[in-house]
Each structure stands twice: as structure tokens, then as C-alpha cells.
Design a protein around this nucleic acid. Sequence first.
DNA 1: AATGAGGGATGACAAATGTCATGCGGCGCT
DNA 2: AGCGCCGCATGACATTTGTCATCCCTCATT
Lengths: 203, 203
Amino acid sequence: MSIRLVIADDQALVRGALAALLGLEPDIEVVAELGDGTGVAAAVVEHSADVAMLDVEMPGLDGISAAAAVRRAAPSCRVLMVTTFGRPGYLRRAMLAGASGFVVKDTPARQLAEAVRRVHQGLRVVDPVLAAESLTAGDSPLTEREAEVLKAASDGGTVADIAKSAMLSEGTVRNYLSATMAKTGGRTRAEAVRIAEDNGWLL
Amino acid sequence: MSIRLVIADDQALVRGALAALLGLEPDIEVVAELGDGTGVAAAVVEHSADVAMLDVEMPGLDGISAAAAVRRAAPSCRVLMVTTFGRPGYLRRAMLAGASGFVVKDTPARQLAEAVRRVHQGLRVVDPVLAAESLTAGDSPLTEREAEVLKAASDGGTVADIAKSAMLSEGTVRNYLSATMAKTGGRTRAEAVRIAEDNGWLL
DNA sequence: AATGAGGGATGACAAATGTCATGCGGCGCT
DNA sequence: AGCGCCGCATGACATTTGTCATCCCTCATT
């Protein structure tokens, strides 16, 4: 009996190409393709899928949240995350959300089908380089509010803009930003944003 | 006789998947897959390819430069650019570099093979939405130095950092940044960076 | 020869940013 | 009850930015 697979990726070209690639495998059957995370759990249930392959970066519901939704709706369905960026924080969060595997998009195409088979068998699939990074990088040092403020700062607005969007006093915003800079080791606000993004501490 | 195709994309998974997708077409033959832009022109010549499908964002030689190299080395080979980001500036620069087509990665997978066939026939393939944006957005207003300084600023360093990396006086750096902010309409340095990136004025 | 644009620089000034101390109330832990 | 962390806020302060005027030099255009 073949593995029933659901694929979610926001880039239609990539989504279709992955479906084509995996559809070539005799033991894999692609039963649904989605462009965002919102309908994934429902699709998994509807098609009684065995494995869901999810991109982390998606509009609407992000991959991590979608993974959690899938686990809740269909505990027997394994989740394999596929992402462009090997952010350590993504890996950790994906695992906490119940994912069984995590591969980055520059792993060889040959290994993808194998990864699908492994997670289907209940094994865990994790890029070893990433796993190591994830251990050394540690969890996010930012508090919820700090992350929120930093995220609001990530599009380059002024303190006044951020204060307005977060309903905070300007002084408070500066305090939070100062804290994020101290915790990330960044010397400027922009640097703190970059570091936090690279580690997957925002989202 | 089938269309001989060279594919270059830095994400191995995507590259392999695209190859699989297009390999299914009876009239297309994937003769080479590359992970960066440096070897593309040579590969095109070696395999006497008809069409080269290039990603814009690649390590080493970027897709635009690779496109130019292909046109120089094998004028008979058409170039189809494929990119994640529909930056207006990318489209313009790609066309100037001699590309025949430009598609973004969220176009439906079905249309990709058709795009390859069209450029092979000497037709131009351009996402109409993008083409319109490209016209309204206009060319980059930034001078070479301004773009260089703004790029140096894009990782969040201080003025002193930028000055050092560009071998300029700090005052001059501030003047250039001020100019970029005026030209992009950004109210802060970070905003100017974002706007310039979104328009494809950096790179 | 004159004009203008771009690269490079200085100095001065106003505004924004980053830092720090300090305060308060709430929540969880021991 | 006390301690510490977090959320939120103020106020003061030193830096860093962003803005502007002004200067020099070069090169291409007129």
C-alpha cells in the first residue's frame, strides 16, 4: 500500500515540482496540494493522509502552526517540515509542534523520498548539521513582548511607528529594543533584527 | 527533436524537483543541473543546450550575470529566468542581460513547460502583473555608490562599520545614506534598505 | 568655456536612538 | 511573606543619525 502524501508550499512552481518528483516514486501517492497552511489539517483528514510535507514559510497559517493543527486533527499522520532557511529556532519549534522530520531545501532531491518513507515509518529525520546548530544556539532568549516589538521594528519604522502599532509608550519601546539588542548581542536595532531572524526567534 | 534544457538553482531540492517535473514532458530533455551560476555558460556550450533556466538568487555568480554570460557564450541559447521574488528591477535587469523570459515561482507548475517551449521558439514570456509593475516602478534612482553604501548598510551595522567597509569618511556615508533615503522615500535607513530591496535596486 | 552630475569631504545642528536608574503592579515560585 | 521576572512607564543622559550648506575635483555634455 502506498504512502498517502499531502504537500503544502506557497510557491506553486515548487509545490508542483515536488509533487512531480515524489509522484515518480512507486510507493508514494500525492493526494493533495495546498498553497497555504489553513486547509492542511482538513485535507489530511479528508484524504486520510499518512504524511504531510509542510513548508515553514507560508502566508496565512505558518507551517509550524499547521503542523500542530495536523497533529491535533490526525495524530496518526506524520509531519515532515521542509524549509528554505535552516533557522535553528524553526527546527526546535517544529519538533515541539509535533513534527517528525525537518529538511532544508538544499538537501539533494534523491533523499527527499527517503525522508518521506522514514517519517512514515515513525522514524525521525533531521539534518545533522542543523541539529548541532540548534543545540548550540539554544532557545530564544527573548520574552514574548520583546519578540513582538522587534518584529514590529523589522520593517524599518521609527520608534513612534512601533509604539503606535504595539500600543506602547515610546520609552517602553526603546527599553524593549535595548533589551533585545543586549540579548542578541547586536549593536544596533537593525542588527538585532537580523540576528533574531537568522535564529528563527521571530516569526 | 526535444528541447535541451539546463537548470540552475541553488536549492538542490527545488532544482531536482523542477528537473523531474520538466523531465516528464516528452519534448523536453534536461541535460544539466547546476547549483550556482559560475558554470552555467560552460555547461550550455558543452551540452549545446537550447534553453537555460536560471534562478536570480544564487551564490557565486548571480542569475542575471549568468544570463549575460550565456548570451555571450552561446547566442543561440535562450534564457528563462525563474525567481522567488517578483522585484521589478530584476525583470528589467534580466531583460537587459538578454533573457527571453521571466517567471516567478508562484506561477502554476503547468505553465512552466509551456514557458520553456515559448522561449525556445523565440517568443518572450513575462508575467503580465510584473511587467506592469516594472513600468510604473521605473529604473533605479540610485547611483552606483549610493547602492553600494546602502547594500553595506543592509546588514545593520553602524555608520562607522559602513565607512570602514567602503573606505569612506563617516560624514560621506551619512550623506549617501541621506540621499538614498530621499530617493527611496524611506524615513529611516532601514526603511530605505527595505524599499530598495523590494524594488530590486540592490544586488 | 561653461554647465551639471557624481564622487568625496567637512562642519554644524536638530532629531532620533540607545542606555540606565528607578518606579509600580502582577504573577509564579519557595 | 519574600524573591525574582516580566510588563509598562518616566526621565535624564550620551551617542548616533539624518539634514544641510559648502567646498574641491573629475568627467562628460553643451
